[in-house]
């Protein structure tokens, strides 16, 4: 791209595609089934960039912002539904989220910048499925399921089966994710989200960690950006569930992190740094989640790193 000081935009998107904005899910599914290489557009913060970079070359872009049913945040039958059109800003502003899932508020606040959060969606985030995504640990810690509509009907698949590899999910050609469902844990609980970046402010994650501490003494621990897909740290959970959380137990758990995650070195951090910080974050996250469970601890939205 050529650019001069006055912000002249020199190279437009060369690749040609058609654009459709269906009014119903059925209409969307028909288009998705009939076109050769469709791309689904919600916020566009990933998709438009990928088209510019020629990573994606759709023949038709299907804009789902006209599907009102997908723009909802609902809490029904003890389950939170986040529709595919829901942006991170919608989550930050939602009363349901603040009251029932404050840790989602905490996560959404760390996603990119306001200008991105006003467009970018949770569902788009998990469909792009980049390892550094912020919504991966959310789905995995809450044992969420992904609702997928297709011409043969609707299917629900658990988060653990959704993420297959970087940029690869269980979504099949012709299908559309309509939303994600997060069951509300049965016991009282509190959470802590820690996103490590190179600086405070807008950055992609070097390490992500979500901890849920439950009143029955169990924990759910999920890491992001330290493996090809989000890692639910089952070995650590097995070690600490139901135990008294002592400094020596935390030390043992920190050692186990080396078996759970497989960080790589890239432009944002070395694998050694990621490994080291994952342990630091685990300890601080545990403290914060447990304090919050006991009614104290840092306010949601305050970083503990």
């Amino acid at each position: 791209m050529e650019n001069n000081f006055f912000g002249e935009y020199k190279v437009p998107i060369i690749h040609k595609f058609d654009y459709l904005k269906p009014k119903s899910i059925d209409e969307a599914l028909t288009v998705l089934a009939q076109s050769k290489n469709p791309a689904i557009l919600a916020g566009g913060t990933d998709l438009v960039d990928m088209i510019k970079e020629n990573v994606v070359q759709p023949d038709v872009v299907v804009d789902i912002k006209g599907l009102d049913a997908l723009n909802q945040i609902k809490f029904e039958n003890d389950t939170l539904f986040i529709g595919a059109g829901v942006t991170f800003s919608d989550l930050i502003e939602s009363k349901i989220i603040k009251e029932k899932y404050p840790v989602i508020f905490e996560i959404a606040k760390t996603v990119a910048s306001v200008g991105i959060r006003n467009r970018a969606t949770v569902v788009g985030n998990i469909c792009s499925a980049l390892p550094c995504m912020d919504s991966g640990p959310l789905l995995s810690a809450y044992d969420a399921s992904v609702t997928i509509a297709g011409q043969k009907g609707t299917r629900n698949i658990p988060a653990a089966e959704w993420f297959i590899a970087p940029r690869k999910t269980a979504l099949q050609k012709g299908e559309l994710v309509t939303g994600v469902s997060l069951p509300y844990p049965k016991v009282k609980h509190a959470g802590c989200w820690i996103k490590l970046g190179r600086y405070t402010g807008e950055d992609l994650a070097q390490v992500n960690l979500l901890i849920l501490a439950m009143a029955d003494g169990t924990f759910r621990i999920s890491f992001g950006a330290v493996a090809p897909v989000p890692v639910r740290a089952k070995k650590i959970e097995k070690l600490i569930n139901g135990q008294a959380i002592t400094p020596s137990l935390i030390e043992k758990a920190k050692q186990l992190i080396e078996e759970e995650i497989k960080p790589i070195t890239d432009v944002r951090a070395t694998k050694e740094y990621r490994m080291h910080m994952a342990k630091v974050m685990f300890e601080r996250g545990m403290n914060a989640a447990i304090s919050r469970l006991n009614g104290c601890g840092p306010e949601y939205g305050t970083s503990v790193i």
Partner: peptide, 24 residues
Amino acid sequence: CDKGDCGTCTVMINGKTVRSCLVL
């Protein structure tokens, strides 16, 4: 930057700031 990172292309759509480099 042309990829959503810098904010110089900011405009408002329906009262909310967006990155116009990432909007068709």
